[in-house]
Design a protein around this nucleic acid. Structure first.
Lengths: 207, 207
DNA sequence: ACCTGTGAATAAGTTCACAGCA
DNA sequence: TGCTGTGAACTTATTCACAGGT
């Protein structure tokens, strides 16, 4: 099983497992069974075992998985073992929240630079990051930044992405509600808050 | 085909189509073919046609889909034809950004109330919404609010959800990085920003 | 007794290819 | 001719059931 192509859905779940394992380690758990991890993450035990089996034999029969070892394995698979630096483009309400967001650290992610067009906020310092003029965006190449988060208005999204790619960015987390055209070598993940919310009523029973 | 179960993935795509149709209508397009819509949304034409076919014959052979009619059909399917009111719980950095977010309107969604524990911000007014004390959360039942967005710290998430469900909420957009236990009648969609970002390095070519 | 790892079975979702109508 | 609508083929993902270690 180990040699076949790895499902995208498996990759999508790996960070969920990591989150669960952190909770377990906070409880000083040394080993964890798939059933036990399932309680933390809300995913069935057989799915968890299958997912891990694509990458190797991480567990011990009769015992379970070593929490610390498993965390390391997942981080290695996701390439989170080396710290990853990201640039934020667009420091409006949402961008500001992302800049202040404390949750990236556990994944080894770090917002290392922030850019905006608004002269009123350029130069302002938030959490050790000084907001820079967007004209300096192409400079991230020298700083070895390969990830970006964009939180700019829809109409500016595509041009921002074009500049980022030219500057060497290969992974983009996009908060603009639009489809972005990028070369195959670049991965885009779009988070559209209102779109996700728009799905909720469908699943709700008729009041 | 019309009578079988509708794929979740199809439901996930419907708001994307709606977004594309709005772009098309802004260009004063009256009709749109699946190929044309595909250009707006980045989804293959055959997938678009298949998705719509689950619900009925929305198009005209040789012509395409009527933009306005199709928008109405999608809104009806997603139950967005009646305006949906939502409560926001947790008005920190992220909650504030959500409150200021202009994108809900196109889906007929409306943040109608906001709650927090912080006395410093209770009473403050943002975009016509006065932030209320979280102790008044159960009062949303009388206001016919069936949706909620939670942007509270992880440790407060489960208890917040419990209160919301008791107050009649049936759909929850969760920004807390954790798994929430809810009864089957309640739908939760979790957005975990750092988790989505943590997936990017996996897809990036080794530098 | 307990828990992993996995082939096989099942289910879900996508893509194809083309009939059928405007 | 142009474009939809859809069975059928194919691909991807989930679930089962149990062999095989500890």
């Amino acid at each position: 099983m180990r040699y076949s192509r790895i499902p995208d859905e498996t990759i999508r779940r790996l960070p969920i497992y990591l989150r669960g394992l952190i909770l377990a380690s906070e409880q000083d758990q040394k080993n964890i069974s798939s059933t036990n991890l399932a309680d933390y993450v809300g995913i069935f035990p057989w799915q968890i075992r299958k997912d891990f089996s694509y990458f190797g034999d991480f567990g011990t029969r009769g015992v379970g998985y070593n929490v610390v070892k498993l965390m390391k394995e997942i981080k290695r698979i996701l390439k989170l073992n080396i710290d990853q630096k990201a640039a934020l483009v667009g420091v409006g309400n949402l961008g500001m929240a992302i800049l202040a967001f404390p949750g990236f650290g556990i994944y080894g992610l770090d917002i290392a630079a922030a850019f905006d067009v608004n002269p009123k906020i350029i130069g302002r310092k938030i959490k050790n990051i000084t907001i820079e003029n967007i004209s300096r965006l192409s400079g991230i190449k020298k700083r070895k930044i390969k990830l970006a988060v964009i939180a700019v208005p829809r109409k500016a999204a595509q041009e921002t992405v074009d500049v980022l790619i030219k500057a060497g960015v290969r992974g983009i987390l996009n908060f603009s509600p639009c489809y972005l055209i990028v070369p195959k070598k670049v991965k885009v993940i779009t988070i559209d808050i209102s779109m996700d919310m728009a799905r909720l009523p469908y699943y709700m029973p008729a009041s």
